[in-house]
Structure formats: structure tokens, C-alpha cells
Design a protein around this nucleic acid. Structure first.
Lengths: 111, 111
DNA sequence: TTGTCTTATCGTATATTTGCGATATAAGAT
DNA sequence: ATCTTATATCGCAAATATACGATAAGACAA
């Protein structure tokens, strides 16, 4: 890839793509699921629930954090993560805005 | 990466991740936007609207098709793409199912 | 047939992601 | 101070993704 051209698209397109990228791995989906099911901070535990090494899980958490999908605080020797619902709502609304003008003609499959 | 471990997660997790991966590039978001705005088959045109080479656009379309997000038919010397709304609805419902049990306590941000 | 137009595929270069072990860091316990 | 525990970060290897030019394939026109 000589140059990547991602920056040639609109900011909203890039934002949506970044959000999607953060969700584009089953491990991260699984992590979000765990965080979602218990609506509270989770410190360790996640590593035990996934078939991945601790360093790998930490990396996935970092990506989710960078994407803004989870928040995290350091609490002594432990870290504490939970879902950033605001970000999910923002994504949801942008997503539906993107396709807003077609919900009506939803059934018109042409090919 | 010695081995990828994606297959160690549940099918739903993999499906959601694959859907997200298909949307994880601004070019593909832009393509979907074009397909969505005109609710009909689009043949060429897409290449003209994107800052990418024809072969690159074709590749992105292929990925969207593989992910099931668009359908395509060959129509003589042209190809015809449009959005697969069914797939989007399926994703939407799985996505909201994933987070269903938290909509209530949405505001409980703990960290 | 030959040329033209449109789209797909191939080959290749480079960038990014994924994963792990090893190591660092930071707080609390002994 | 030293040990333990929990988590983050570094460094590396392998896999994937991104992008493009060149080329192939397929339909139609001349």
C-alpha cells in the first residue's frame, strides 16, 4: 500500500469506520459482551473468560479504549473498565442517519 | 500471529465482528452511502465518486458482497450493486440483542 | 474479426493487525 | 526492603488489509 487514503473521506465516514473497526474482532465483541452483561466496572476476570493471553486481552482493551467504546480507570494495581454508552448512542444515531432515507423503501430489492 | 484464534469465539460473535469488519473502512462506508441514497442498482459511477483506483473500488465491493451487505448481479458488460437490507436488519437486531439488558441502566457510568 | 468499454482478477509493495512471551510498573502484603 | 499480584508495554513474528497498475474476461459495435 503506497499511501493510505482514509483521510480523503469525510470525517463522519472515518468516525463510523473507526467505530466499526473497534468492533471488528470477536475478542472485542466478547469483551464488550462481558462489560455489558454486568453493568459495572470489571477489573480482572476478562482475561479468564477469553481464550487469549493476558497481554493480548490488554491490547484489545486498549483499542476499545482508544476508540472510545469503553472507559477505564486505574485503581491501585488493578484497572477498571466499563462501557461508554454515550459513544454507542452516538454511533447508533449516526448509523441510522446514514440510512435514514431508505427505511421506507426497504423492500425494494432490485438485484 | 502464530495462529488466529477467531474461531474460538461463538458464531454470533464472529458474525458481528465480520459485519463490523466489512464496515471498517471509510471507502466502504462511502460506497454504502451511495448505494443507499439511490435505492436502486448502481453500475459504474461509484468509481467516479471515490478517490480510489477502479481496481481498488472493485475490491471493496467484493468485500461488501462477501460480507453479504450488498448484492450484485452481472448485467452484460456491467455489474449491478445494491444494498442487502435484510443483512442490515439482521445485524441491527443482533447488535441490540447483545446490549438489550442494559438499556435500562444506561446512565450508570461507573468509571 | 477487431476494437471499445466496463468490471474483475492477478501480482506486488507496503501498512496494519493479531498474538505471545518477556519485561516493566505499581500497589499492597509480609 | 522484598515478594506477590494485576495490568500495561515492548519487541518480534506471522497474518491480513490496502492500494495500484497491468491484464483478463465479457458483451456489444463496427
Amino acid at each position: 500500500m503506497a499511501i493510505h487514503k482514509k483521510e480523503e473521506f469525510t470525517q463522519k465516514e472515518q468516525d463510523l469506520a473507526n467505530f466499526a473497526k473497534a468492533m471488528a474482532h470477536p475478542a472485542r465483541i466478547a469483551i464488550l459482551k462481558v462489560l455489558a452483561q454486568r453493568n459495572e466496572c470489571i477489573c480482572g476476570e476478562i482475561v479468564d473468560l477469553l481464550p487469549l493471553a493476558q497481554s493480548t486481552v490488554s491490547q484489545h482493551l486498549k483499542e476499545l479504549k482508544n476508540a472510545g467504546l469503553v472507559t477505564g480507570t486505574v485503581d491501585g494495581p488493578r484497572s477498571c473498565y466499563c462501557i461508554n454508552w454515550k459513544a454507542f448512542e452516538k454511533f447508533n444515531s449516526e448509523f441510522s442517519f446514514l440510512f435514514a432515507n431508505l427505511k421506507l423503501k426497504n423492500e425494494k430489492a432490485c438485484c
